[in-house]
């Protein structure tokens, strides 16, 4: 069952089209990556999901119902452009934002104390926001976003501005949230974190969705049958060992280790490759090289660019 679905969303601004017939389906308790280059329409879609703006066409469903204003309290949103009132005290402000989401004051206070303790920032409570560093402010924004225990969380570039230690802390929390029942839409350029966190993705470029599906399925679809073999250093003329249809991409000797990458035809099995190689070398490793999400992202975006020329 999908927790959130958008069907054929179109949004036009005066000068340009931000979204053209975009549909996404987000399964409950999964992390959904919303990918795309700058200006592709991600933020427009996120604003529509948050009911900040309305789509010109298309329907939105939350847990099977049509998306209505009262669903706001079930959605948590961490925008890319985020800030806090600079002159307001940290605790007071967190309390205010939580209450705006509909959490009763006493409950909000209790939960805030819990999270502030967990993130070890309880002594910031009475500080003014302007006294905190940007990373510190981001932590508070993160807490405020998840405080009302929303069913659907939307993070727009959540890791920007964090140091590696806090990025890990945040990743852990995001995975925790999913394991505890939340569904997460996660918009980013950071492909590494996509591979680490996301179950499903949708790639948006120039207002259109150009790719979607499960991360491992996409990677399998885009794999190029490339294998990397590690072997002990010896002079081998690979062109004599493997058939001509096999393509040797690279042969590197570094730090006493030799690695070769070979691309085999789509209808051949890796076992065949091993069979060719075994008699001639001492094999140490054999891996399939799967394309990274980064490669797929760049490939798809470039394909579309060429199409439009």
């Amino acid at each position: 069952m999908y927790l959130f679905s958008a069907h054929n969303i179109t949004k036009n601004y005066a000068a340009h089209t931000a979204l053209k017939n975009v549909s996404i389906d987000v399964s409950a308790q999964t992390i959904f990556g919303l990918l795309g280059p700058n200006g592709a329409g991600k933020t427009s879609l996120i604003r529509i999901i948050n009911q900040i703006t309305a789509p010109d066409e298309g329907e939105l469903y939350f847990n099977g119902e049509k998306l209505k204003p009262h669903h706001i309290s079930l959605i948590g949103y961490l925008p890319e452009e985020r800030g806090l009132y600079k002159k307001m005290k940290v605790g007071e402000q967190a309390l205010y934002l939580a209450q705006l989401k509909g959490v009763p004051k006493a409950e909000a206070l209790k939960k805030l104390k819990y999270w502030f303790e967990k993130f070890e920032i309880l002594d910031w409570w009475n500080k003014k926001v302007e006294e905190l560093s940007k990373g510190m402010q981001q932590k508070i924004q993160f807490i405020v976003t998840i405080l009302h225990e929303p069913k659907l969380l939307i993070f727009d570039e959540p890791f920007s501005g964090f140091d590696p230690i806090n990025v890990n802390l945040l990743k852990e929390e995001i995975l925790n949230l999913r394991n505890n029942g939340a569904t997460i839409i996660f918009s980013t350029h950071n492909m590494e974190s996509v591979e680490e966190l996301c179950d499903n993705i949708a790639l948006i470029n120039k207002a259109e969705k150009i790719l979607d599906g499960k991360v491992h399925e996409i990677k399998n679809t885009y794999k190029a049958n490339i294998f990397e073999i590690g072997y002990n250093k010896q002079e081998i003329n690979f062109n004599e060992i493997v058939p001509q249809s096999y393509e040797i991409l690279s042969d590197i000797h570094q730090n006493g280790i030799s690695k070769i990458q070979i691309k085999i035809p789509a209808d051949e099995m890796p076992n065949q490759l091993i069979k060719y190689l075994i008699p001639h070398m001492e094999m140490h490793s054999f891996n399939e090289i799967l394309p990274s999400m980064n490669d797929i992202f760049i490939q798809k975006v470039n394909e579309q660019k060429q199409k439009s020329f």
Binding site: I75, P79, E81, R82, Y85
Partner: peptide
């Protein structure tokens, strides 16, 4: 202007 430049406005208008 304060709300706009500090970018808190997007957080708030996702609630109201």
């Amino acid at each position: 202007i304060e709300e706009k430049t500090s970018r808190i406005v997007e957080v708030i208008i996702s609630s109201v």
